[in-house]
Simulated assay, not measured.
Amino acid sequence: MLALAAAIGLCAPTIALASAQARPAPTVSSAAAAASPAYTTSVRTGVGLLGGTTDTGNHCGSYDDWNNTSPCTTPLQFPFPVKFYGKTYTSALADTAGNIQFGGDATRTESDTCFPDPELGPAFAVHTGYAMQTAEKPTFGIFTGVHGTAPHRTFVVEWRAGLAGLSFDDPYAEWDFEARFVEGSSTVSAVFGDSYENDLGPNDTWVRTSPAPWRGSTAVQDGLGHSSGGCGGTPAKGTEVTFTTTPTAPTVVEENGAAVRYSGTWRAGRCGSSTCSPGNRQTSTSAAGARATLTYTGTRADWVASTGPNGGKVGLYVDGRFVRTVDLYSPTIVDGRVFAGPTKASGKHTLTLKRLSGRLNVDAFRVR
């Protein structure tokens, strides 16, 4: 049925989620990287399809289709930025077999395997059963729709498909299901419309998440409670499975981490209170023009420092652009103060601290 990110197979309707890591962008070993956000799942019933109205042009066959057509992928352009596993996307690919791929371009080549499918990359997937195709009937295809008004829109990708090789006068060979993306949110969901059994056996459905490609992955979560080794059962019409981002703890980069670079004269010291970072160290400077720069991969980096009578003013920059001036003065010493950086699109960034006056100190950074 549908998969958001890698793919879905043919063994039953399945909803699975895995972060897109196919064709990974080059990484720099000195950059601090934030962990991918996890997802929690919830299931409810009695939910109607919103439906798609725009035909994407995906009218393709399947691996074992009798009309000798093949599955295919079709580009999707999102009407708003879509967040998936901590990354932001403006486009993706929809596959005949019921999946949306972020970063990969693959089609199903077998009709009898369930997720995780080793042939495909990472994904959020809703798996339909067997050899799905969108070519047999003029009403079949992949359709998109935008519901609501900005900034509260929902983008829908709907599959109207059938089982390859059966007589399509038989309604028991057809499926209707959709994936939903919510504007300004990392929430993704799958909703089942008609999902019938047929003479080849029951359609099995499951919803799974994984922050890694399916091949060899052990971090797979199933939204319908099925074991990782097989397919599930047929979901009732109106079943919705929703994936919601679970906030993850920030990655702490100590002041002496490999991702931090200093210019000017700095002095190492201790930070002994319970509010200091776990390393109980900090480094400080009173040198004119001294700087500290963190290179990180994520959406935001926060700076942890102490304020006190000798604290000065500090210029905070992200990706070389001035953000604001931070004042580290306070009548008494206060350790463990957190100064938040701005939220940016997920990717590689720099956060720079420039001493303007008084004393500048660095306890740690927190990357999200």
Score class of each variant (00 low, 15 high):
Thr144Trp: 04
Glu183Ile: 09
Val157Leu: 00
Glu110Phe: 14
Thr187Asn: 13
Thr109Gly: 05
Glu174Asp: 11
Gly141Gln: 05
Gly104Leu: 02
Ala135Met: 08
Thr154Gln: 09
Glu110Lys: 14
Trp175Asp: 08
Phe102His: 02
Ser185Leu: 09
Pro118Ile: 07
Pro171Lys: 02
Asp105Asn: 15
Gly162Glu: 12
Ala123Arg: 07
Glu183His: 10
Ala161Ser: 13
Thr149Ser: 15
Ala131Asp: 15
Thr109Arg: 05
Gly141Ile: 02
Phe124Leu: 15
Cys114Phe: 12
Ser185Ala: 14
Pro151Gly: 12
Arg153Gly: 06
Phe177Arg: 05
Pro151Gln: 12
Asp117Phe: 07
Ala179Gly: 14
Val146Leu: 15
Arg160Glu: 00
Gly162Arg: 05
Glu136Cys: 11
Arg160Cys: 00
Gly184Tyr: 10
Ser167Pro: 08
Tyr130His: 11
Glu158Arg: 00
Glu158Val: 01
Trp159Cys: 02
Pro138Asp: 08
Ser189Val: 05
Ala131Arg: 03
Pro122Met: 11
Leu120Lys: 11
Gln133Ile: 03
Val156Phe: 03
Phe168Arg: 03
Thr144Val: 13
Cys114Glu: 08
Pro151Asp: 11
Ala125Asp: 09
Gly165His: 01
Thr149Trp: 07
Thr113Cys: 09
Gly103Tyr: 03
Gln101Ser: 08
Pro116Tyr: 01
Gln133Asp: 12
Tyr130Arg: 09
Ser185Lys: 13
Phe140Trp: 15
Pro116Trp: 00
Ala173Arg: 10
His127Met: 13
Ala150His: 11
Phe155Gln: 04
Thr134Ser: 11
Phe181His: 09
Ala173Lys: 06
Ala106Phe: 12
Pro118Trp: 03
Asp176Pro: 00
Gly162Ala: 10
Val188Asn: 12
Val156Ser: 05
Asp169Thr: 12
Pro122His: 07
Pro151Ser: 13
Ala125Cys: 09
Glu183Phe: 09
Trp159Gln: 06
Pro118Ser: 07
Gly141Tyr: 02
Thr134Gln: 02
Gly129Ile: 00
Asp170Gly: 05
Val188Ile: 15
Phe155Arg: 04
Ala106Glu: 15
Ala123Tyr: 14
Ser111Ile: 09
Tyr172Val: 04
His127Cys: 12
